[in-house]
Design a protein around this nucleic acid. Sequence first.
DNA 1: GAACGTGGTCAAATCACTTGACCAATTCCG
DNA 2: CGGAATTGGTCAAGTGATTTGACCACGTTC
Lengths: 252, 252
Amino acid sequence: MPFQPVTAARLSGAVVEQIELLILRGVLRPGERLPAERDLAERLGVSRPSLREALGALQEKGLLEARAGAGVFVAEGLRSVFPPALVRLFAGHREAVVDYIGFRRDLEGQAAERAAVHGTDGDHAVIAAALAAMEEAHGRRSTPEEEAELDAGFHMAILEAAHNVVLLHMMRAMFGLLREGVFYNRQIMFRNQPTRARLLEQHRSIAAAILGRDPAAARAAVEAHMDFVEQALAEQVRAEGHEAVARQRLER
Amino acid sequence: MPFQPVTAARLSGAVVEQIELLILRGVLRPGERLPAERDLAERLGVSRPSLREALGALQEKGLLEARAGAGVFVAEGLRSVFPPALVRLFAGHREAVVDYIGFRRDLEGQAAERAAVHGTDGDHAVIAAALAAMEEAHGRRSTPEEEAELDAGFHMAILEAAHNVVLLHMMRAMFGLLREGVFYNRQIMFRNQPTRARLLEQHRSIAAAILGRDPAAARAAVEAHMDFVEQALAEQVRAEGHEAVARQRLER
DNA sequence: GAACGTGGTCAAATCACTTGACCAATTCCG
DNA sequence: CGGAATTGGTCAAGTGATTTGACCACGTTC
């Protein structure tokens, strides 16, 4: 029968969740001091010991730092690009995925435009080669891991062709996180046959627009691609939800 | 400062939530008997008094019925189409919105096909009149409430033109729920100027395909329309989320 | 009709949280 | 520079939520 054990949610857990979200969304910034414990406890409507339990958990996660007599601060270390504590935070929240795709959509759209305009013949050759590798892999039924790696290579080639070092380093860090599966399991995009075909088609459109030196078309193609990825991921999440419900129905 | 009071979630609340979801998803069906209290308490990992508190709340909501000596049953009354208890359940869960749109997409796609093939000249005249009313309203800046009402009239005209009484009654009930704002506030679709324009465009496409007796085009136009509605709603939810975060940042 | 299994009720014990107090460290102000 | 104020850190007693365990009444089954 499809019943799951429930656990009494601790008050401190709810406090942790709220403060984590404020950090994730940039409302609480690195180095910033939180309200004093007595004040914060009052605002949250909890006792100081309960609040302190939550603050302790957040310190263990590397998100907060407490100094007796001085106050509680958002960890300075969160200022660096993608410190481990922030990566764990991203991994635990779905809205980071949506924001990531939106962000990537904007930046890669821009990169594609720039690659169409400023890309050298050498850059364009690298992009063409990356696409050729994907076509070849597609033909011989490679693994989803391999195709995901080629996909990253293709997108990195475009980013390099954009000749913007800030953009490049930012996106390199992003792809690092994507490889670690922080945002989503990128291989799922290549497991489904029709999706594989659609992705290749979109990559062809992107490459054609860049190599044809059509910045507007390049941008539009990238945006359409990211829209498709977002939709496919949403579909995946829904399908997984449906699978879980079907299993529950079967369990009776 | 952007901190919200937190309240200790009661154990019984978590139990209520789980059983509600099982009912919403059709895992627990009307008339079906739940496991005995002692058994269920064990599976959920809670005490009988806590479980009974949850079962009591579910009975008050009209979802369960208990009979001393016989057992606890999912309410028989949930068998009827959209009983109040089920409507309240829909209203409280976002996944019902997604399912509703998917369901409506399928049924209205079918209805549009049928309207293209089987609709009489009279039916088609009604559809054309409904579209004309929407064009007229669009031109003179009507209220979102008024446009939502005309929208429902347009879709009902198509459903009537499909000449399938089961479909018609089913969708009438659906539109009744939509009017009550169970799934979403339907007027939000008409508040945004570009969205208004897009909706009218899509309604024109739907009408043109039906009146041109092109079933495949009619279905495709309806599906594209529902996809757009779903996307616009998702955007709305995200925008509201962003607005809330912006307010929190401002609050410091 | 008796036994078993069910829902319904309740008291005592345990755990999570609150209240209130006190101590040590840091900051601020005169 | 020292004292006052504010901060974090710790802890005991009280309160409410939950668990444990028991008992009673009703319905079903053999």
